[in-house]
Nucleic acid binder design. Sequence first.
DNA 1: TGTTGGTTTGTACTGGGAGTACAAACTACG
DNA 2: CGTAGTTTGTACTCCCAGTACAAACCAACA
Lengths: 208, 208
Amino acid sequence: MRKLPAKLASQLYGAAELIAERGLDGTKIEDIAEATGIPKATIYYHLDGKNAVLEFLLSDLLDMIAGAVGVAVSSSEDARTRLEAAVLAQLGVMLEHPFLCRALVGDLGRATRLPELAGALRTAFYEPIEQLLAEGVSDGSLRQVADPGAVALSVFGAITVVGLSAAVEGPSVDPSTAAVRFSAAVSDLVLDGLATPGSRDQRRGEPL
Amino acid sequence: MRKLPAKLASQLYGAAELIAERGLDGTKIEDIAEATGIPKATIYYHLDGKNAVLEFLLSDLLDMIAGAVGVAVSSSEDARTRLEAAVLAQLGVMLEHPFLCRALVGDLGRATRLPELAGALRTAFYEPIEQLLAEGVSDGSLRQVADPGAVALSVFGAITVVGLSAAVEGPSVDPSTAAVRFSAAVSDLVLDGLATPGSRDQRRGEPL
DNA sequence: TGTTGGTTTGTACTGGGAGTACAAACTACG
DNA sequence: CGTAGTTTGTACTCCCAGTACAAACCAACA
């Protein structure tokens, strides 16, 4: 898979909506050719088939997410603040690209079975969070939990599902406003939890 | 799609691992026939094709989850406690059926495009939580949040992603122990949050 | 026992679409 | 011009889902 020329790359995005709508299987190569204006023969000249089309689109999305989150995470604030920033960054990118997100949900299975993508998925979504939780414990802005791995996974799940679900609901008029709204909800949950002060009865000994 | 006889139904589960491993597309009907011992012609006599196989398997999984969560939710405890029970119940079923879960992730797109399943998915996963959060506010065991819908979605995401990821990691030796462990982590996060007491600086005015 | 109606299964076929082969045209650069 | 990469149309091949159908099988029941 040689790196394909910028022009073709940009045309390929025209296929995202199609794939999002019908899934990769429901989308014929001919359809992609028609939607993008790139003839079938040319597609096959550059890419190794349908999967490669999806792989190209999704790895791009994952790069964007990883990039945005990376920036958010590397400020000099405390970990708690950076976590909020990371949540916002991830949701921002996701809402900015609803079709890619829908394609991702739709062919998640195939995506996880494509080795490159599986790794990129981890890098984009999961690792920054895991990292941040650890740093939060060090700098005292986040509390220690019993099972950091599982908790990081939960946080990752909370963010991602909100983002995907928003994408599936359909493109929003104003993605960045929506991102702010959703990220507030997620951060609220993840930082402060749902228990009322009165019902916080079984903490593991740290003072209230 | 007439209701298919119990014997065939049970045989069909033999296809779950196959589908989980390779995805529905990577699985030929002939493979399913071989794995289950049900000849292709018989499969087609009862089911409307490959999708129907998946649909059958998944709707069963979703029923199990909806059932277990339903039980957990309908005790007479306060909402907070029932939420914990629901988390445990959902993860319990998911870890009990890793192959079905993997098939679900793998063909999530197709699943959401199958109208019956999309509804069942919502019923099994999302609605009970949404309900519970509302009840928690009434009975005082959970706090009020600004955007209940988005928060419910986050909680749903946290649970589900943990479950799916555990399923993808491979079947565990002792599913119910694993379920307890994971549900503890999720409940811990969802109820108490990650902020340290010192950093709880921007709550919306409710007293600490 | 024969008859009827559903189920089971093997075999052979059809059709659609992914991917391939290939040659002709086009482009760029020396 | 010549050489090398790219673009594209056309015409394939091949695989596999789904269908057709007929023969067997298995009740129940008169």
